[in-house]
Computed example of a mutant assay.
Amino acid sequence: MSDLMRITSRDAFAEVLAEARAHTRALDPSRWPVLQSIATQLEFMARTTARGRIPHPDDRTRTNLGPLGLREFGELDPEYADALGELDYTFARYHLLPPGPAVMRRGILQVWSGRESYHKLILEPGVPRTVGTARADFVVYADAGGSPHFQIVWDGVCAHVQALDPHRITVDGEPCFVGELANRGWMTAGRTSFRFLVEDYTPPPGPVTPSEAGLAALAQLRVPCDAGTLYAVVDAARSERALQLIEESVDPYASLFDGERGRAFDDVAPYLVHLRSDSRLLERVVHEGWGDAWGVFLVSKKPLEAVRRHLRQFLMVEVEGEADRVFFRFYDPRVLKSLEPVFSREQRAALLRALDAVYYESSDTLAVLAAG
Rank of each mutant, 00 (worst) to 15 (best):
E180T: 08
P207Y: 09
R191E: 15
V198N: 03
G185M: 08
V208E: 14
T192H: 07
V208K: 12
T202K: 01
E199S: 00
F196Q: 01
Y201A: 01
R184I: 03
A182G: 14
P210F: 09
A189W: 04
Y201I: 00
M187E: 02
G185V: 04
M187W: 07
Y201S: 03
G185L: 08
E199Q: 11
F194H: 02
A182S: 14
F196R: 05
P203Y: 10
P205H: 11
P204H: 11
T188R: 14
N183Q: 07
G185H: 08
T188C: 09
M187S: 03
E180Q: 14
G185E: 05
R191G: 10
L181Y: 04
L197R: 05
N183V: 05
S193P: 01
G190A: 13
V198T: 07
Y201H: 09
S193T: 00
R191P: 13
P207M: 12
R195G: 01
R195P: 02
T188N: 12
R195Q: 10
R184H: 11
F196S: 00
M187P: 00
T209E: 11
A182I: 05
R184D: 10
G206F: 15
T192V: 15
A189G: 14
N183C: 05
E199D: 15
P204S: 12
V198G: 01
F196V: 04
G185F: 04
W186A: 05
F194S: 05
W186I: 06
D200T: 06
T192L: 08
T188G: 09
P210I: 07
T209M: 11
F194R: 02
F196K: 08
G190I: 10
E199K: 01
F196W: 00
T202F: 07
P210V: 09
P207L: 15
L181Q: 00
P204V: 09
L181M: 08
M187L: 13
D200E: 10
G185A: 13
P204W: 13
D200S: 11
V198C: 01
P204E: 11
A189E: 01
T202E: 10
T188E: 14
P203L: 13
R191F: 15
D200W: 11
G190E: 04
N183G: 03
S193G: 07
G185K: 06
V208A: 10
S193F: 07
T192K: 04
E180I: 02
L181G: 05
G206H: 15
T192S: 09
E180M: 08
L197C: 03
P210A: 11
V208F: 13
T188K: 12
T202Y: 06
T202I: 11
R191D: 14
T188Y: 00
T209H: 14
T188V: 14
E180F: 12
G190R: 09
A189S: 15
D200Y: 12
D200H: 13
P210H: 09
T209N: 12
V208R: 15
